[in-house]
């Protein structure tokens, strides 16, 4: 964005700095505590070459996609209802905020009792993390929409559906995308924590087993994979937002 250098060059420099920091830390604390970037990448490559690793990835992805879909559609729908109905929103907001401040991991035993060991517990735990932020962001998107947009659509004599699709939706979209971006990371977090505590498959499970036997390069390889995945998705959503909203 600046005149001094293009955006891509800035991103590249940040990446380079992070790599240097990583290498520096590795040298400082030693290979037994922190694998080097090259060790990590080669471990990840060998993991990806094995079929078993892909089974774990697909297991995690299945749970994540289901949990994110529920958080996304449920959160936006709920948020819109609460945003439109003022009283319902006023009642729900403190409840949701309080609920969300509970450390959810203490409820995980309950989730396991309700859903059993398996994919449904992971999905439920992911939804517990992702649904509320998306709901709150969507609700505030509607509540904080400039009143003048609604008045403008009245003055232009738009039908309710024209007003909803051509004014209100584009007006609230940036806020909603912010909520979805946050909900995305939190849902992923929820699914992984679920896998770490009670699962026989998935990346979270692999992570816990690697921790138990002290395979530092495996831990780092999985962390790298997840980071690349999350950062890429986030960047795509940000690009989508910028293209659509021009602000």
């Amino acid at each position: 964005m600046t005149a001094l250098m293009p955006r891509s060059a800035g991103t590249f420099l940040v990446l380079l700095a992070l790599l240097a920091l990583w290498q520096g830390l590795h040298l400082l604390v030693g290979a037994s505590s922190l694998a080097s970037p090259t060790q990590t990448v080669s471990k990840l490559a060998s993991l990806l070459a094995a079929g078993e690793f892909w089974l774990n990835i697909s297991e995690t992805m299945r749970a994540f996609v289901a949990a994110f879909a529920i958080s996304l559609f449920g959160g936006i729908a709920l948020g819109i209802v609460l945003g439109v109905r003022k009283l319902a929103g006023n009642v729900a907001e403190p409840i949701l905020t309080t609920l969300y401040s509970i450390p959810k991991v203490v409820l995980y035993p309950l989730v396991l009792l309700c859903f059993g060991l398996g994919i449904s517990a992971k999905i439920a735990f992911g939804v517990m993390h992702g649904l509320i932020p998306i709901t709150l962001f969507s609700m505030n998107a509607i509540r904080q929409m400039k009143p003048v947009y609604r008045r403008t659509s009245q003055v232009m004599r738009l039908s309710p559906s024209q007003s909803a699709f051509t004014v209100i939706m584009p007006a609230i979209l940036p806020e909603i995308i912010s909520g979805v971006r946050l909900g995305f990371s939190l849902t992923l977090l929820g699914v992984l924590i679920g896998e770490m505590f009670a699962s026989q498959r998935g990346l979270g499970f692999l992570l816990t087993s690697a921790i138990n036997i002290g395979q530092i390069d495996t831990i780092m390889a999985i962390a790298l994979l997840l980071t690349v995945f999350a950062v890429t998705c986030n960047a795509l959503m940000m690009r989508f937002d910028r293209r659509l909203t021009h602000r």
Binding site: K146, P147, V148, Y149, R151, T152, V167, P170, A171, L173, L244, T245, H246, R247
Partner: peptide, 10 residues
């Protein structure tokens, strides 16, 4: 025409 900026930023 309203006082507030009612142009659509998108």
């Amino acid at each position: 025409v309203f006082q507030e900026d009612a142009s659509f930023p998108w």
